[in-house]
Amino acid sequence: MLRYTAKQLLNIAVTLLAVSFLVFALNELTPIDVARKLLGPYATQDQVDILYKQMGLDRSLLARYWEYLANALSGNFGESNLYRRPVAEILWDRLGNTLVLAGICFAVIVPFSALLGVLAGMRERSFVDRAVSVFASVCASIPEFALGVFLLAIFVVGLGILPGTSPLSTSGGWPIWSQFVLPVAVVTLYDGGYLISMIRSSMVEVMRQPYIRTATLKGMPFRNVVVKHALRNALITPFTVILLQLNYLVSGLVVVEMVFAYPGFGRMMLEAALNKDIALVEAGALCAVSVTMLTQILGDLGYMALDPRIRV
């Protein structure tokens, strides 16, 4: 177990290194002139050239990467061109916001979809199963932005009981908690729809297993069969997928963040990439990769805990 974790941590370090270089190199390929972008369309070519030199962009890619890496290792992630502030400041702020949103979503999505998925899957083709399946596929097939707009139309425009944007400040007159309701609802419905189908089909598969028949023919009430024998088995397969949702929740919420003007990590990354804010993109990418790799380890460990057949 210890060896496994150590190995995985080493894996993360290597991957982070590779990713940091890749992002750096790929950034080079985008046809945006940073200096021009910063100075605006009315600057002269001379001014642009000077800034170009000042920023050290005339040096080779490797040299610049090396410098970046050395700084990053000592904790200095550079300064954002876009926001004119140290990267660390912006990053932690945005990442913090996103983690709050992601945490709430995750805490809602998992029990919500596990409950519905198990209820649907335990009696295949029953009324509950059909109803839940339809609900799940409808949720999963409406795009996030459309879902966001629908909910906005109902709760903000129609009923007026929730705020239309979530800037996480009380200046608009809405308490902070109320600003979370709609983003969380959109993410839960959209992502939950997918998870429900996953858990349902896993549950259906488990209910067909001979050991479920064994349990039933022991004389156990159906409830106990489901809770004691089926539940844990049904969660084994979707478990990895459930944890993968964490990645999505951290770095994939761009759309929701845009719709609700939520100051999150995804939006930050989008803006940074569009403005060729290399320092910010780099740091963001490294964060996203770390989250992915960590959830993977978490997934493996959890998998082992759930399924005694798998041991390192």
Binding site: Q209, P210, Y211, R213, T214, A215, T216, L217, K218, G219, M220, P221, K228, H229, R232, N233, I236, L306, D307, P308, R309
Partner: peptide, 23 residues
Amino acid sequence: RRVRGNRAAMIYQDPMSSLNPVM
């Protein structure tokens, strides 16, 4: 339920799959 597993019990073909793998 009082008959099943109590007064009549069953033994199956494939013992591996008729035992719950996580218990």
